[in-house]
Nucleic acid binder design. Structure first.
Lengths: 213, 213
DNA sequence: CCGAAAAGTGAATACAAATTCACATCACCC
DNA sequence: GGGTGATGTGAATTTGTATTCACTTTTCGG
């Protein structure tokens, strides 16, 4: 029956996603996925051509949720500055609160196939930022920076500063997470020459759109 | 004889380094290193406990050269702004001109051991930037930004924008490399609130200290 | 109910590297 | 020159997973 097939596919993807959430892509071994999904290892190959394909699928599912969130914010009403703040704040804030997921998506050592997927993910981030920057430049909110490069920089800076090699270690992020996020938003604002800055001692302008699952 | 031992160690390290320069750490397989060095695979283990140790050693040798270069610039005479420009310009410029090495050091998918080594490398970058930023803030050249976070962002932004997922592909960098580097330097200056900006249409303020090997 | 096709199984296999090791060779000292 | 320990060798082994496949079970139209 076609529905059972779809259901199994889901079970497998969910199992893989859970493992990734818990231990990164390193934890998503085929045998582990099979056990978690309650199927035989061989069955995985009825649904996915290879491990790479399965992992890519998981990556896309998880990352597209994140991307859509940010893309939606970028399309809301409001000044470019306001939306840039909210995008950056959500990007950084979600990463801080969902550190394990952020690590898996952005920084975990992965193989070539997933590195490619990650590349796309970053490119999408960058293009969201780029759109906002161009808009802000056009209407005079921002300085006339190189939007493409600046966007690429921002898309690289936030993850690296947060979950990357340079990250304050986890305990610090637990304690000072909000502060770090605020510094990051200010970094972004400064880099585009926005007039407005976040006040370091008050909460951010807008609440987060969603919470981390 | 002790000198032959030292010489062999060198031969092996050089072979490994050459392979990394040519094809990244993925190309540095033990058998390939052995062939290139003109020794048997077994001999590698007389000199290095494991592949990880060999690769780490190679990483350190190559990266420390880069780090020292930047650290020396940061310690030179001049305003914080001047030195920040020169550090950023050299960092980005060397990466553009030595793209394969930059890729291996900064972006290639690698295993956990090398990822750790890379973490140190980035941390060192960040601390160089952090020192300059703090100095610049102290004497009023820069705005009062969060030096730690800003430094971490810059250290992450430049590599990602250049050789990472977002990079214009290699051809573009060949053609527009200088322009991209200039945009990056301006990004850095903006992010710290420096008064001075690089002129987009003239060459950078200072010549590079060295050329890529 | 039957039979063919699809789906499920998991032990066996494939695979790609790193690593080992039993043996050969060398350097050096008596 | 002979003995001894260090060094060199590379084929064989190990290792850790992904992948396969001969077989069983299920599904479903006729």
């Amino acid at each position: 029956m076609v529905s059972r097939v779809a259901e199994n596919r889901r079970k497998i993807l969910n199992a893989a996603r859970e493992l990734v959430l818990e231990g990164g892509f390193a934890a998503a071994q085929m045998s582990a996925v099979a056990v978690r999904a309650g199927v035989a290892t061989g069955s995985l190959y009825r649904y996915f051509k290879s491990k790479d394909e399965l992992c890519r699928q998981v990556f896309r599912e998880v990352s597209s949720r994140e991307m859509n969130l940010l893309a939606n914010i970028a399309e809301k009403q409001g000044s470019a500055t306001e939306r840039l703040i909210e995008v950056a704040d959500n990007f950084a804030g979600r990463a801080v609160r969902g550190r394990r997921l952020a690590f898996a998506l952005l920084n975990e050592p992965v193989d070539v196939a997933l590195a490619e997927e990650r590349r796309r993910f970053r490119r999408t981030h960058a293009s969201i930022f780029q759109g906002l920057i161009e808009e802000g430049i056009a209407n005079g909110e921002f300085d006339n920076v190189d939007a493409e490069i600046t966007a690429a920089c921002i898309a690289g800076a936030i993850p690296t500063a947060l979950v990357g090699p340079l990250a304050p270690d986890s305990d610090v992020l637990d304690a000072r997470g909000d502060e770090v996020v605020k510094s990051l938003v200010n970094f972004v604002l400064k880099s585009v020459g926005a007039k407005q800055q976040l006040n370091q001692s008050t909460p951010q302008a807008k609440p987060h759109q969603t919470t981390v699952q």
